[in-house]
Computed example of a mutant assay.
Amino acid sequence: MFGLFKSDPTKKLQKEYERKLEQAMHAARNGDMRANASLTEEAEAIRAEIEALKKG
């Protein structure tokens, strides 16, 4: 019953993951491939956190 009011931590991480991917896309469009690689790496780390939360 009280679990109804708990927030889902994966939702926040999912939004952050999508935001990082969008930033990476814009960096790639502007020709900044280093920023693209860095942001993509950060996004993949966030995705790994999401997967770990879903499993455990």
Rank of each mutant, 00 (worst) to 15 (best):
M1Q: 03
M1L: 09
F2C: 11
F2W: 13
F2I: 14
G3F: 01
G3V: 07
G3P: 00
G3Q: 05
G3M: 00
L4K: 13
K6H: 02
K6Y: 02
K6C: 04
K6V: 08
S7E: 10
S7N: 09
D8I: 07
D8L: 04
D8E: 07
P9W: 06
P9K: 11
T10S: 05
K11M: 06
K11P: 05
K11A: 11
K12E: 08
K12D: 05
K12T: 13
L13A: 07
L13W: 01
Q14V: 06
Q14W: 04
K15T: 05
K15D: 01
K15A: 04
K15M: 04
K15V: 03
K15R: 07
E16V: 12
E16W: 00
Y17K: 05
Y17N: 02
Y17Q: 05
E18G: 02
E18L: 12
E18T: 12
E18D: 14
E18M: 07
E18I: 11
R19G: 03
E22R: 12
E22P: 04
E22N: 11
Q23A: 10
Q23C: 08
A24D: 05
A24H: 03
A24N: 01
A24T: 10
A24L: 07
A24V: 12
H26M: 13
H26Y: 10
A27C: 09
A27R: 07
A27M: 11
A28T: 10
A28E: 10
A28R: 13
N30V: 14
N30Y: 13
N30S: 15
G31Y: 03
D32H: 06
M33G: 12
R34P: 11
R34L: 15
N36Y: 12
N36I: 03
N36K: 13
A37D: 15
A37H: 12
A37S: 15
S38Q: 14
S38K: 14
L39Y: 01
L39D: 03
L39N: 02
T40Q: 08
E41A: 12
E41D: 09
E41P: 01
E41C: 06
E41Q: 12
E42P: 05
A43R: 00
A43M: 03
E44G: 03
E44N: 07
A45M: 11
I46W: 01
R47G: 01
R47A: 08
A48S: 09
A48T: 12
A48G: 07
E49H: 09
E49Q: 15
E51L: 13
E51N: 13
E51W: 07
A52I: 08
A52D: 08
A52W: 02
L53V: 09
L53C: 04
L53A: 05
L53G: 00
K54Y: 02
K54H: 03
K54L: 05
K55F: 05
K55N: 09
K55R: 15
G56Y: 08
G56N: 14
G56K: 11
